[in-house]
Design a protein around this nucleic acid. Structure first.
Length: 218
DNA sequence: ACCCAGGGTCATA
DNA sequence: TATGACCATGGG
């Protein structure tokens, strides 16, 4: 049976893709860089994350071993532009410790998606969204990433109330769009792109590609 | 001078 | 379970 809201979600996807084009996510060269970016971008503009990652690359420490060998304060200094640098330095090292103890990326890639998700959520500093970023964009698993934009746009389209639990929203989108890695990948990226232009906390509805679907009344 | 950004943890009730 | 405090840089 088709999930409720599926036609609207599909229609919205088509309109967003038509307007903005393919987004080419995730912006990272390796799965490890994707994972690092997923932590660094927590509640932070991506432009700031790019500076931090550039610092890590320039210092030659964009690897598990190198990041674990650094003193937390030294790592924090490198990622300073990304904000919350003390917190994120600890989180990055926790993630690296997990990767090493789990036997590396190859061992992780052999795990089933639910098991891998549970393992990621057990890492300090990895919550639902960061875990799903990693699952979808680093490991290519069919998991829909829910962020504040997903809730806001979903609510303005009348597909969700917006204040449901993370898992509820995730299941709603996944059921409506089918287990399709390419669609999940592109859709989340398009929602982020769209939110930057139109679907702000204070919306800019002039020229919005979703105007015909939107039930939001500014 | 504000508001916002590709969240998560921890203490408290 | 559900809030609130806290973390911090940088662009509009």
């Amino acid at each position: 049976m088709t999930a409720p809201g599926a036609p609207r979600l599909r229609a919205a996807f088509d309109l967003l893709l038509d307007r903005y084009g393919p987004q080419g996510w995730w912006p990272g060269e390796t799965p490890f860089e994707v994972m690092v970016g997923a932590v660094l971008t927590q509640n932070t503009a991506w432009s700031n994350v790019e500076r931090a990652i550039a610092n890590l690359k320039r210092a030659g420490v964009l690897s598990c071993g190198a990041m674990l060998a650094l003193a937390p304060e030294a790592l924090a200094a490198l990622i300073r532009p990304a904000g919350y640098f003390n917190v994120k330095a600890v989180r990055l090292q926790a993630l690296c410790r997990f990767l090493v103890e789990a036997g590396g990326e190859a061992a992780l890639a052999a795990r089933d998606t639910p098991g891998l998700r549970t393992a990621l959520l057990a890492v300090h500093g990895v919550g639902p969204e960061t875990a799903d970023d990693i699952l979808l964009y680093a490991f290519g698993r069919p998991v829909f990433v829910v962020d504040a934009y997903t809730r806001r746009i979903g609510a303005r389209l009348g597909l969700v109330a917006g204040d449901e639990g993370y898992e509820i929203i995730r299941r709603t989108f996944e059921a409506a769009l089918g287990p399709d890695v390419a669609v999940f990948n592109e859709y989340h990226a398009l929602l982020v792109r769209h939110a930057k232009v139109h679907c702000r906390p204070r919306p800019r509805c002039e020229g919005c590609p979703l105007a015909t679907l939107c039930s939001f009344d500014p």
